[in-house]
Simulated scan of single mutants.
Amino acid sequence: MPETMSGLEAALAEASSPTWTQRIRAGRDLASFAEVPEAGEALVGLLLDVEDTAVTRQTAEALARVGTVAAMRLIALAVADADDNQADWLQTGVCDAFVGPDGVPDLAVVCGELARDPEEAVRQGATAVSAWADDTRR
């Protein structure tokens, strides 16, 4: 089995852990697999974690740092389903990605692509994420 797949499987297992620190690690580890359907499903669950806002925040930051269309689409989907508290922590996570030393990809370009997504929830979420990115850069 290729090492990346064993890493993916281990992270998928951690995503459903009762321990919040393991779920955070899963969010970080799964972010680079955002285009893999099983990982995407687990990541949306972590973005909308009902037990710990740190999981939401750290997963959103990890996905924003990846910055691909697949990664940002998952954040947009989560934003569409988030309650106000979850949305605040999603926003904080996305904004955290901007203050790191590595910077992040140009999320405005990615959100622009997502604004044309066939799924309305993705379009709405991408609009919110784009606004967060704009506010952070000011």
Score class of each variant (00 low, 15 high):
Asp106Glu: 09
Thr19Trp: 11
Gly103Gln: 03
Asp83Val: 07
Leu48Cys: 10
Leu8Thr: 05
Ala71Ile: 04
Ala15Lys: 02
Glu41Ile: 04
Val122Arg: 00
Ser17Ile: 11
Ala82Ser: 14
Met5Ser: 12
Ala115Val: 03
Ser32Ala: 08
Ser16Glu: 14
Ala11Thr: 09
Leu8Asn: 03
Val79Lys: 08
Trp20Lys: 06
Leu47Asp: 01
Gln86Met: 11
Ala26Asn: 06
Gln58Trp: 02
Glu51Pro: 00
Ala60Lys: 00
Thr127Ala: 14
Leu30Asp: 05
Asp106Ala: 04
Val104Asp: 00
Thr92Tyr: 06
Gly93Thr: 04
Ala76Pro: 03
Pro2Leu: 15
Glu38Asn: 05
Thr92Trp: 02
Pro37Ser: 04
Thr19Val: 15
Leu77Val: 15
Val129Gln: 06
Ala64Val: 04
Ser17Arg: 12
Leu8Lys: 04
Arg28Val: 12
Phe98Asn: 02
Thr92Ala: 14
Leu48Thr: 12
Asp135Gln: 14
Ala54His: 08
Ala121Ile: 12
Val55Ile: 07
Gln22Thr: 12
Arg137Ala: 13
Val69Asn: 02
Val50Asn: 09
Ala108Tyr: 02
Cys111His: 04
Ser6Met: 15
Ile75Gln: 00
Gly103Trp: 02
Ala60Pro: 00
Thr4Tyr: 10
Leu8Ser: 03
Thr19Tyr: 12
Gly45Ser: 13
Pro118Met: 09
Ala60Cys: 02
Gly67Ile: 07
Phe33Ala: 05
Leu63Met: 06
Val36Glu: 08
Ala39Glu: 01
Ala71Trp: 00
Gly103Cys: 05
Val129Ser: 04
Ala31His: 02
Leu107Arg: 02
Asp29Arg: 07
Asp84Cys: 07
Arg137Val: 10
Asp134Glu: 14
Arg138Cys: 14
Met5Leu: 14
Arg123Asn: 11
Leu46Gln: 03
Asp88Trp: 12
Arg138Asp: 15
Ala31Asp: 03
Ala82Glu: 08
Leu8Val: 06
Asp134Lys: 14
Arg28Pro: 00
Arg123Asp: 12
Cys111Ser: 05
Asp134Tyr: 09
Ala121Phe: 09
Ala71Ser: 09
Ala60Asp: 02
Gln91Asp: 10
Thr19Gln: 13
Asp117Lys: 06
Leu47Cys: 03
Ser130Tyr: 06
Ala131Phe: 13
Thr136Glu: 11
Arg138Tyr: 14
Trp89Asp: 12
Glu41Trp: 00
Asp102Tyr: 09
Ile24Ser: 00
Asp81Ile: 08
Val99Asp: 06
Asp96Asn: 08
Val55Met: 03
Thr53Arg: 13
Ala133His: 05
Trp89Leu: 12
Asp96Gly: 00
Ala126His: 02
Gly100Leu: 03
Ala131Gln: 15
Asp88Phe: 13
Ala87Gln: 10
Asp88Tyr: 12
Glu14Cys: 03
Thr4Ile: 13
Leu48Ile: 13
Trp89Phe: 15
Glu120Ser: 14
Leu90Tyr: 06
Gly40Tyr: 00
Asp96Trp: 01
Asp102Ala: 14
Asp49Asn: 11
Ala87Val: 11
Leu114Val: 05
Leu77Glu: 14
Ala15Val: 07
Ile75Lys: 01
Ala126Lys: 05
Arg116Glu: 11
Leu12Glu: 07
Val122Lys: 01
Asp134Thr: 15
Leu74Met: 08
Leu43Asp: 03
Gly93Arg: 00
Ala97Gln: 01
Pro37Ala: 08
Asn85Leu: 13
Val69Phe: 00
Phe33Gln: 04
Leu47Val: 07
